[in-house]
């Protein structure tokens, strides 16, 4: 279990922001940090990793103190057992895929982990390639595998899938689920993508202006109403067009634009860019064969 209770003053683009994070992450849990850009998600991850020093507070893993400003304890990142996947993957360009993984292993560590990870992440054909010759999705798989070589106490993922296109993202979400379960990991993910969060996480922390404003399971957090819909999709409002009696709302769901008819009262609270859920009761589903 990881207990976090920290404060740090951050300089943001519009002055300073106070980051106050208080939370607990249970062993084996998959938690997502969700929030707008600049809310302090990445800073929280960096503080956990030891790449950023908090001004005040404590971080404890089970019974080990990582940070305790009262007793002047600050464990360097080298001494915390962490897997970190960076936004830009941070693969070492001078090393092959295999060398990247080997570099991450500790002295005297069993090399079997590496061959297991290569197999699991399906990197077998790529192990002699340099990172810059790989596609984005392949690089991401290498970065994930590399972060797991040290068998981390906690895996930190900083928007790992943001730069990838939709199809590859889905595939990598499966990889993440698989490694999380297989290795019994404790995982903290930073993500903007509600669909992704729903699919992957046990709990969500919503971060607003440096504070956790809400915690809960994804379903509770992202839908205020209890809908007994059979089909539920998360999307973003692109257009709201009044037409005669009804209003047509265009919603981007994954990579498709869907038009939904709504009435005036429903649209009142909607703005372009809002995240919405499109749900349908299943009394008239129609099936199209697509493949």
């Amino acid at each position: 279990m990881i207990k976090i209770d920290i404060h740090k003053k951050l300089s943001a683009y519009d002055g300073t922001m106070n980051l106050y994070i208080q939370c607990q992450i249970e062993k084996g849990e998959f938690v997502t940090l969700y929030g707008e850009s600049g809310a302090g998600k990445t800073s929280t991850l960096r503080i956990l990793a030891g790449l950023l020093k908090p001004d005040k507070g404590e971080i404890t893993l089970d019974n080990t103190s990582w940070v305790d400003t009262k007793n002047k304890i600050f464990l360097a990142p080298q001494n915390r057992n962490i897997g970190y996947v960076f936004q830009d993957y941070a693969l070492f360009p001078n090393m092959t895929v295999l060398q990247n993984l080997e570099f991450a292993s500790k002295k005297g560590q069993d090399k079997k982990v590496i061959s297991d990870l290569i197999e699991m992440m399906e990197l077998g054909d790529l192990h002699n390639r340099k990172p810059q010759t790989l596609s984005g999705g392949q690089q991401q798989r290498v970065a994930l595998a590399r972060a797991l070589v040290c068998k981390p106490d906690i895996l930190l993922l900083d928007e790992p899938l943001a730069a990838l296109d939709y199809k590859i993202r889905l595939k990598l979400q499966d990889y993440i689920t698989r490694i999380h379960n297989e290795y019994g990991l404790t995982t903290l993910l930073v993500s903007h993508d509600i669909g992704e969060i729903m699919k992957l996480s046990d709990r969500v922390f919503v971060l607003e202006h440096g504070k956790i404003s809400r915690k809960g399971i994804p379903n509770e957090i992202f839908s205020n109403k209890k809908i007994s819909g059979k089909f539920k999709f998360i999307g973003e409002v692109l257009k709201i067009e009044p037409q005669d009696v009804v209003i047509v709302v265009s919603v981007l769901i994954q990579n498709n634009v869907v038009k939904v008819i709504a009435d005036k009262s429903e649209v009142q609270s909607l703005n372009i860019g809002d995240k919405v859920m499109v749900a349908s009761k299943a009394f008239n589903p129609i099936l199209y064969k697509i493949e």
Partner: peptide, 27 residues
Amino acid sequence: LPHSLTEASQVMGKSKWTTLFKVLLPN
């Protein structure tokens, strides 16, 4: 060089010198 290279190496438990000679200089 992106700062994340240094940080990635640190998180893997590598010292400053190892990072400099194995990661930064070769790049």
